[in-house]
């Protein structure tokens, strides 16, 4: 069972930062999300039907923000572990447990492991186990990066069984009602080696994300960074041009996230050219000639 006692530390005196138990991390304020198509309806329907969701799309195009937004939107009473006001469900978000995958992410990292505690061993749940128990949305980012043995866990969880085998303890967990597995995956730069297997991908409905069209992207940048509308328009135009360079020297186009950063810098008084150089040209590539090309586009667009 969890090592630290549950309870939010946020209400103690050392409040310069907030500490949550994973199950408790809910999104209470509405995150800004500008729907591009019908993704909200599709996701809601999938959630209600307990169908796991696969989000595809390039980095920084809004996948994570979308999941956050959906967690907020689908906010509903917690069933377990939560102490305190779990009866008051209105306005509460849905717990969202985000796990960033990496090459060394193993099944035990997800399910849990034994720790030494004095001269005894103690079992500690992994994040996936906790999400299953808490009925949270579990968001596995960049899932193909994880080791193959994680699929052993994902498969029974994602079909009709909704079971999580905890092999080391000889248990099987049945997922709580609200549990939903969402995975994300960027088909762009993953090599063929790391492609998602058919047996895995066919357990999810898939939603494709793209960078938003120019006007919408400008609106997002304007909203998120607080930069003026004109600069936001130009940033969106820059993005469009730089994305043309994908496969022509750039692995990925510039993400909306980076545009927002650029916008942030501009609204803090950095000159637009400098801001874009830092947030776009330098951020995208280490190759001086590619940087130079992007810089030339920047200096053409911004005065």
């Amino acid at each position: 069972m969890p090592k630290k006692s549950s309870g939010s530390v946020a209400d103690t005196n050392r409040a310069s930062y907030s500490e949550y138990e994973v199950e408790e991390f809910t999104i209470d304020e509405e995150p800004y999300y500008l729907p591009i198509q019908d993704e909200i309806e599709v996701f809601t329907a999938a959630y209600e039907q307990k169908i796991p969701v696969l989000l595809k799309g390039p980095t920084g195009c809004g996948k994570t923000r979308f999941v956050e937004y959906m967690a907020w939107r689908l906010g509903r009473p917690m069933s377990t572990v939560r102490k305190g006001n779990n009866q008051e469900s209105d306005g509460e978000g849905k717990p969202l447990i985000t796990i960033a995958s990496h090459e060394d992410l193993t099944a035990s990292d997800l399910v849990g492991r034994f720790l030494l505690d004095g001269e005894e061993t103690r079992w500690v749940d992994g994040p996936l186990t906790r999400a299953v128990k808490a009925g949270a949305i579990c968001y596995l980012d960049e899932v193909v990066e994880a080791r193959k043995d994680t699929t052993v866990l994902i498969h029974p969880l994602t079909d009709h069984r909704r079971l999580l085998p905890v092999e080391k303890r000889g248990q099987i967990l049945e997922a709580a009602d609200g549990f939903l597995l969402v995975i994300s995956y960027n088909p762009g730069y993953q090599s063929a080696l790391k492609d998602l297997k058919q047996s895995t991908r066919q357990r999810f409905i898939a939603m494709e994300f793209e960078y938003p069209p120019r006007e919408q992207e400008a609106a997002i940048v304007h909203q998120e960074s607080g930069v003026d509308q004109n600069s936001a328009d130009l940033l969106a135009r820059l993005a469009e041009k730089v994305r043309n360079l994908k496969e022509h020297g750039l692995q990925e186009g510039v993400s909306t996230r980076l545009l927002i950063y650029a916008g942030n810098l501009i609204s803090k008084g950095i000159s637009p050219r400098r801001a874009c150089e830092a947030a776009v040209a330098q951020a995208l590539s280490d190759d001086p000639s590619v940087q130079r090309s992007i810089n030339e586009i920047i200096t053409s667009i911004f005065e």
């Binding site: 041009k241 043309n244 360079l245 022509h248 000639s289 090309s293 992007i294 586009i297």
Partner: peptide, 15 residues
Amino acid sequence: APILQMYARGLTGGD
């Protein structure tokens, strides 16, 4: 040339 070529590709979106 490499810089301007990328620049041109960026602006036109063509190859």
